[in-house]
């Protein structure tokens, strides 16, 4: 049975379609293993080879991977939620309640989105602390630390903009308070608040702006920075393993 499966798979790998998709060919050599990574647009951001120690739980606690995982969950649950949610003042709150009580699996998707968002903020902070206390931000990885700071900010902005969307009392007053904090910026604070809210108070324009930021602008920006972040891990010599551990 297993032999039959194996020979069928071997035949499949010889087909023209398979070879047009996976051009690296097939084999147990180091070259073929490297080509699997190098010739895939997603995998090629990562190193062709990693040290065994870099895969151990103790080095990273997998916090970066877990952050990416929550981000993936948030994208996958966020898109279906968009299908029932209208970012308008009369509908936003009732749509949110429909998702909770009327839409099949709506409450599951919404709660998964909400809890993953909380988890992502926690994991990104934990990831930053882990990197900081291990000293993994030091040269040659200082640029990737800066990228990471931007990713932390994107995470917080995503969390903040998503907070308004249920359009309940908690959301409204939290964004009122948050936008008034921004107007404390010297000289341009009131201007930034006006542009952010699209008006003088938290209203229809603010809801629509936060929705666009939350669903389009910030996720795209985060995805681009995540790609650079991963690529830089490879370019900076892989994950940081500690002083003098890289050549041992």
């Amino acid at each position: 049975m297993a032999g039959l499966l194996e020979s069928n798979f071997a035949n499949l790998r010889e087909t023209r379609v398979w070879r047009s998709i996976f051009r690296g060919g097939w084999g147990d050599t180091n070259l073929h293993r490297a080509l699997v990574i190098q010739q895939n647009v997603f995998l090629h951001l990562s190193s062709v080879k990693v040290r065994r120690r870099a895969l151990s739980w103790r080095v990273t606690w997998y916090l970066g991977t877990l952050s990416l995982g929550t981000f993936a969950i948030l994208v996958l649950t966020g898109i279906p939620l968009m299908l029932y949610y209208h970012p308008s003042v009369p509908q936003a709150y009732t749509d949110m309640n429909d998702l909770r009580f009327v839409v099949s699996a709506g409450v599951f998707l919404r709660n998964l989105h909400r809890w993953s968002a909380h988890a992502m903020v926690l994991l990104v902070f934990a990831h930053m602390f882990k990197v900081f206390y291990r000293g993994a931000y030091r040269p040659p990885r200082e640029f990737n630390w800066v990228i990471g700071v931007f990713l932390l900010l994107f995470t917080l902005f995503l969390s903040y903009t998503g907070y308004l969307l249920p359009w309940d009392q908690l959301a409204f007053w939290a964004i009122t308070v948050g936008s008034n904090l921004i107007s404390a910026v010297p000289l341009v604070g009131a201007r930034i608040r006006f542009l952010m809210l699209g008006g003088n108070s938290v209203n229809a324009n603010a809801l629509l702006r936060f929705y666009v930021l939350h669903c389009v602008v910030l996720p795209l920006a985060a995805a681009v920075f995540v790609a650079v972040h991963f690529w830089r891990i490879r370019k900076d010599g892989g994950l940081y393993l500690g002083e003098g551990q890289h050549h041992g």
Partner: peptide, 12 residues
């Protein structure tokens, strides 16, 4: 971009 983002008419 700045001019576009700053609304000229507000329905407040």
């Amino acid at each position: 971009g700045y001019e576009f983002l700053a609304p000229n008419v507000l329905y407040e």
